[in-house]
């Protein structure tokens, strides 16, 4: 075995480095340091563009606080629904013939008010700008006292307990104006989702508190199931 070595011996041996390798580095030394690559600049630019797009998308939404007093969260940008795309079928809810009669609306948020039954309105079949909502009490699936529609809408404050890929399980933590859902009740939150519904673009977070606006089609709701159009996050 050849005995060696100390750091100095290694450095001595490096003096006998093959010239082609030394030459290659010698050429590098003569150049200017590499500038960041095009790819790097591209990534920085792409990041900037994405941020800019997000900001531009959020700015118009920030002012859209519902007129009915639901506060917190600052608007719809806080609303989130995880895997909301899987929740777009209302026919397989196991609740019978649930076929929301709310006609498709381009602007769901704006439609909340128009879908909300007017207290003074004698005609129970709501027909507004955004569509008609059948208020047939036979479809309420239980007593009608205190049902949404008899109470001023909204709002329920719900704490998100979980999401099973189809529905959001929540605990009622506040029910001002809507005693039909007692505080402490666990309800399943479903979304009347159709194409273009902004809810589908968001994600719920476990433990977060949301204020929920009912779907105009509250006739499909019961004490355990709640159809909402939008939910505003109140706190993390």
């Amino acid at each position: 075995m050849t005995s060696c070595t100390s750091s100095e011996k290694i450095m001595d041996a490096l003096s006998l480095l093959d010239e082609d390798m030394a030459e290659e580095v010698g050429r590098l030394r003569g150049r200017r340091p590499k500038k960041p690559s095009f790819m790097r600049y591209g990534m920085i630019a792409a990041g900037f563009c994405v941020t800019l797009l997000c900001v531009l998308q959020l700015v118009p939404l920030m002012g859209r606080v519902p007129e009915d007093g639901v506060t917190g969260g600052g608007g719809q940008e806080d609303v989130s629904l995880e895997n909301a795309g899987t929740n777009n079928s209302l026919t397989d809810t196991g609740l019978g013939s649930i076929s929301p009669t709310v006609s498709e609306s381009e602007d769901v948020t704006a439609g909340n008010e128009s879908k909300k039954p007017e207290a003074d309105e004698e005609d129970e079949s709501q027909s507004g700008e955004t569509g008609s909502v059948s208020d047939d009490e036979e479809n309420l699936g239980g007593g009608t006292e205190g049902m949404p529609g008899d109470e001023p809408l909204p709002a329920l404050n719900l704490r998100i307990e979980g999401y099973d890929g189809d529905t959001v399980v929540c605990t009622v933590v506040g029910n001002e104006g809507c005693t039909f859902y007692p505080v402490g009740n666990v309800v399943v939150l479903r979304f009347d989702i159709w194409e273009g519904d902004p809810v589908t673009e968001n994600t719920f977070t476990r433990g977060s508190i949301y204020s929920v606006l009912f779907n105009g089609g509250y006739d499909n709701s019961d004490e355990n199931t709640l159809y909402a159009v939008v939910a505003y996050q109140l706190e993390e």
Binding site: T2, C4, A13, S15
Partner: peptide
């Protein structure tokens, strides 16, 4: 040198036993 000392054993080996040429060949 100090960077190498973190990696290599500190003890100096007798100079006569060192075959710098062989070592250089191995390093290359």
């Amino acid at each position: 040198l100090s960077e190498w000392e973190d990696c290599l054993a500190g003890g100096e080996m007798p100079e006569e036993t060192l075959e710098t040429g062989l070592l250089a060949e191995a390093i290359n």
